[in-house]
């Protein structure tokens, strides 16, 4: 009985301590941003590995998500003779929710896990310690470019996801299901508000980008330097960042769209 209570205490203390270390790491990274601008080549390289290489999965996923939205939406709307609202349905669900959330989830699985594994392995093979010996700050040299690349990539990927998804919905809705093209776009333009929907979706994805990148980088940096430790850290990155994306999405939605 007491031991169960004690275990709960141990776990919660560990969680709080890890959150604190993550925040310290975030502050440390933010503090070294000015000196990172001088070495922007590092950032470009990470943007390529984190952002560009995630692009194919984003585009394919978005195309199919858009098409399935159009298909399901059409089946429901046609019963009420409201298939003219199909464009609006697809565009609103993508800009508000699916674009940022799915881009975030895919990013966490594709790039977040890779970041954690890479940094964790660097730590396990004592490359990070070696850098410190050479008076190179690993936070500045390794962690910061990866973190910034994630923060920049996720909004870009989310916007691309939304745009490609709408295109997928358009392909299926107009070309296959036969919704009128003009009605498809005009209903969309009438219902989607730039500030309310597009900008808020972008803000969401920015928040997700910061959270996922921080979790990925921190988990790698904080992993215990063993094979098992790295594998646990990679799993935790994917699980935690997916959960954080979904929970934060609920919180942000309830704040942005009353």
């Amino acid at each position: 009985m007491i031991s169960a209570v004690r275990r709960t205490g141990t776990v919660s203390l560990a969680v709080f301590a890890a959150t604190g270390r993550a925040c310290m790491l975030l502050m440390q990274m933010l503090y070294s941003i000015p000196s990172a601008i001088r070495r922007y080549g590092l950032l470009i390289e990470q943007l390529y590995r984190v952002g560009v290489l995630t692009l194919p999965i984003i585009i394919v996923a978005a195309l199919f998500v858009g098409m399935v939205l159009a298909l399901q939406g059409y089946n429901t709307l046609v019963d009420f003779g409201a298939e003219s609202s199909l464009g609006l349905l697809v565009a609103l669900s993508l800009t508000r929710e699916l674009g940022p959330v799915l881009a975030g989830l895919l990013f966490a699985g594709r790039a977040g896990a890779a970041l954690t594994a890479e940094i964790g392995l660097m730590k396990a093979t004592e490359q990070l310690a070696g850098m410190e010996m050479m008076a190179v700050d690993p936070v500045w040299r390794i962690l910061l470019p990866r973190f910034l690349a994630g923060v920049i990539s996720v909004p870009l990927l989310a916007v691309l996801f939304t745009a490609v998804g709408i295109f997928g919905g358009y392909l299926l809705g107009v070309d296959v299901l036969g919704v009128d093209q003009g009605v498809f776009w005009s209903a969309m333009q009438q219902g989607v508000d730039f500030q309310q929907d597009v900008i808020n979706g972008l803000l969401k994805s920015l928040v997700f980008g910061v959270l996922i990148s921080l979790i990925a980088v921190f988990m790698g940096y904080d992993a215990s330097p063993t094979p098992a430790g790295v594998s646990t850290a990679t799993t935790l990155t994917v699980v935690l960042s997916s959960l954080v994306v979904l929970v934060m999405d609920f919180c942000l939605t309830s704040m942005m769209f009353q």
Binding site: W185, Q189, D193, F194
Partner: peptide
């Protein structure tokens, strides 16, 4: 998104 999809 801003020009074609929303009503900007």
């Amino acid at each position: 998104l801003s020009l074609k999809v929303s009503n900007l």
